[in-house]
Design a protein around this nucleic acid. Structure first.
Lengths: 135, 135
DNA sequence: GTAGATGCAAAGTATTTGCGACAAG
DNA sequence: CTTGTCGCAAATACTTTGCATCTAC
């Protein structure tokens, strides 16, 4: 296991409050990609008096600090995920909403190549596959 | 030049009104990917009494009918683009917001392969590259 | 003539913010 | 102590909707 979110906060000089510790813990334990509402629900079970404004402020802070990453999949609500070493993309089941994480080095390489071709240096990318499960 | 949006509406049994004709025309002439607000501005110059509600209703209708496609790039606002034969992905200049359209068959093939690998049939995908221009 | 489209303003969502009280370093 | 955070409610941004009127077919 690598660094915890709490350790990352200390390393980056982010002040730790009870609320942030709880949000950090819940995000660490989440294997899905919760939206703010869902995160707020989970956090509320631990400390019912945390406000949703704090949840919004904290995920934004964590995102800016490079602790979480924000996804804007189809459906309006932003969803968050902890950043760990390995980068990956997402395969989304259009029927169930289930998300599978994957990495494909070859695609990664080709992306860089495409950007180069147009005279750009690739700084970020987003790849989402939407599929239906075969029986 | 292929079919106009107006022709597509007739082909799909979508009732044509003045407002829809104007929105269709403006979208056809747009080479960028306008958001609803911007589209509303352009449309208003032709007919100032069109309401923004109609613009929202029309882009949604056109999207459902397969005439337009909706992008949710970073930044909250949905942006629309006319669907023409060739599918393409987007390379976005993170400094200027400029969008370059591209196609890469090899990446397309690999995407299908990845989905298959997890037991899925690929029905849609989104690939966005974010880059900075090299000098 | 009739089902569906429009305009308007009000209602929804998702997210942000001002402010006084409070807590971390 | 002092600066930054929290909770609350009000504010914003984007999008949808109810309803009475109007229009394409």
């Amino acid at each position: 296991m690598s660094e915890t979110i709490e350790q990352k906060c200390i390393a980056k000089g982010v002040k730790l409050t009870d609320q942030r510790r709880i949000i950090a813990q819940v995000m660490s334990e989440s294997t899905d990609h919760p939206d703010v509402d869902e995160l707020y629900n989970r956090v509320s079970k631990i400390d019912p008096k945390i406000s949703i404004a704090t949840v919004y402020r904290t995920v934004k802070l964590f995102e800016e600090t490079g602790i979480l990453t924000k996804h804007e999949f189809k459906g309006g609500k932003a969803r968050y995920e902890e950043i760990n070493e390995g980068h990956h993309d997402h395969l989304i089941d259009v029927k169930t909403g289930e998300i599978i994480e994957f990495v494909d080095d070859e695609i990664e390489k080709l992306q860089k190549k495409v950007a180069e071709k147009y005279g750009y240096k690739l700084v970020d990318h987003k790849l989402e596959l939407y599929g239906i499960k075969k029986k």
